[in-house]
């Protein structure tokens, strides 16, 4: 059972390395330690023209032993201001990580999904009410400046300090 996970993770690792060039917003996706394939990290880059531009957002990915059947647990390590991300814990509210997970997803595709979640927030199911309220009130400018501030505060520059 667990060997199946390892096989699959190894496979994903190799696929990730091969596809590295095709995903501009995913700077890094790899196991934290070479000998532990069940604990990964990823670094998302804020897309240009978004409020997250220039930010490097670190993700922590924990893979369960029955992985493709059960979804991985992903959270933001870097503090990020986003309606669907808990500001303190970094928990992500994304349907494909919860109810809509299917084994056909891969870590790579999930990371891409999270990356696109950054630019397409879903304020109706918020984990960060303040950010969501701004959006719900239609205060895009306020929201953007808030996001920009937090991005500048946490995600730009100090990325080396983990």
């Amino acid at each position: 059972m667990s060997s199946a996970v390892h096989r699959r993770m190894l496979k994903e690792y190799m696929a990730v390395q091969k596809n590295a060039a095709t995903r501009p917003h995913l700077e890094l996706l790899e196991p934290i330690q070479e000998d532990d394939l069940l604990h990964w990290q990823a670094i998302l880059l804020g897309t240009a023209d978004s409020a997250y531009e220039g930010g490097r957002f670190k993700l922590d990915i924990v893979i369960p032993t029955n992985y493709p059947i059960q979804s991985p647990t992903i959270r933001f390590v870097t503090k990020i201001c986003h309606p669907n991300v808990h500001f303190k814990t970094g928990e992500i509210c994304l349907d494909i990580l919860k109810s809509e997970w299917t084994p056909a997803w891969t870590l790579e595709s999930v990371c891409v999904a999270i990356s696109s979640l950054l630019t397409n927030p879903e304020p109706s199911s918020p984990l960060n009410c303040d950010a969501a309220n701004l959006l719900r009130c239609g205060d895009t400018a306020g929201y953007n400046s808030l996001v920009k501030m937090y991005t500048a505060l946490y995600a730009i520059g100090d990325s080396d300090e983990e």
Partner: peptide, 11 residues
């Protein structure tokens, strides 16, 4: 090759 693979285990 990709069509002969299982979407779950990728084998």
């Amino acid at each position: 090759d990709s069509h002969l693979r299982c979407p779950i285990c990728k084998e």
